[in-house]
């Protein structure tokens, strides 16, 4: 913490006025950055400078800044969330960069995620996939006691591993096919592993998969880029689980 050295970095940032406007890269300099700045705090510094000089700041999505809301979404040097294992952009810190580095910053790129402005994209397709069946159809009230159905710890842990997904979209942004299979499978696998989710498992997997394709996402061809980019470490084994659930649903 006693380190007061600062860095100067060159940023090459995608700027785009609106969904139909042409975009281009612009170059900015980030000065006075310490290793303790988070990546977004570094962008805050650049934006303050831009505002003071009467220019429009770089627009980017962010909210909780603690790696859980899934709002932040930037491709840094070609890698969604910047390439530090299990880390969102907001939790990436500047100690991972060196003085004098040049950093490329781009939005998620996928047909199903149209650009609103600069680094902000429309991810409502992920909501649409969940709406197609990413739930148990229980009513508010009138449900049994929480301990009425025992859930073996390994099953509960497996469901929790899948449920870690924050819906940020990095998996689709990283995939050469822009597939949302990791996202979709995480919800399918979570609910299929639990007794509460079994009743609707067949319908769920069919509907969610169909909706994923209708939204414009591609299919999975086992590149595993999604798992590498996932800030929560969601595992591709859930895609295998989805495929098994899908085959079962065809037989049912």
């Amino acid at each position: 913490m006693s380190d007061h050295k600062t860095m100067t970095l060159t940023l090459i940032v995608w700027r785009q006025k609106g969904p139909n406007a042409p975009g281009k890269f612009e170059t900015y300099t980030a000065k006075g950055i310490t290793e303790h700045h988070s990546f977004l705090e570094m962008l805050d510094v650049v934006n303050e400078d831009l505002i003071k000089s009467g220019k429009e700041p770089i627009v980017f999505d962010h909210d909780c800044r603690e790696g859980i809301c899934g709002m932040c979404s930037q491709v840094i040097n070609g890698v969604p969330h910047g390439g530090q294992e299990r880390t969102t952009v907001c939790q990436l810190h500047m100690r991972k960069f060196k003085d004098g580095d040049t950093i490329y910053i781009e939005p998620w790129r996928a047909k199903a995620f149209p650009i609103h402005k600069d680094l902000v994209v429309d991810r409502s397709a992920y909501d649409t996939i969940i709406q197609a069946g990413g739930y148990t159809s229980c009513h508010t009230g009138g449900v049994p006691d929480g301990n009425a159905v025992l859930i073996p710890k390994p099953d509960a842990d497996y469901a929790m591993d899948a449920a870690e997904c924050i819906g940020c979209g990095a998996c689709a942004a990283a995939c050469p096919n822009s597939s949302a299979m990791l996202f979709t499978s995480a919800k399918v696998a979570q609910l299929a592993a639990l007794p509460q989710g079994k009743a609707e498992a067949a319908e769920r997997v069919k509907n969610m998969l169909e909706t994923m394709q209708e939204c414009g996402f591609g299919n999975c061809s086992n590149h595993y880029e999604c798992q590498a980019a996932c800030p929560k470490g969601v595992n591709v084994k859930f895609i295998a689980k989805l495929n098994r659930e899908y085959l079962k649903s065809l037989a049912s």
């Binding site: 009230g141 049994p144 301990n147 025992l150 710890k153 989710g197």
Partner: peptide, 22 residues
């Protein structure tokens, strides 16, 4: 108490012990 039941029914993966209880 109703809240816990509701969340379990939704598939919230609460921590469980080895016997399968919450």
């Amino acid at each position: 108490n109703n809240i816990i039941d509701q969340c379990v029914a939704q598939g919230v993966p609460f921590a469980r012990d080895y016997s399968g209880y919450l």
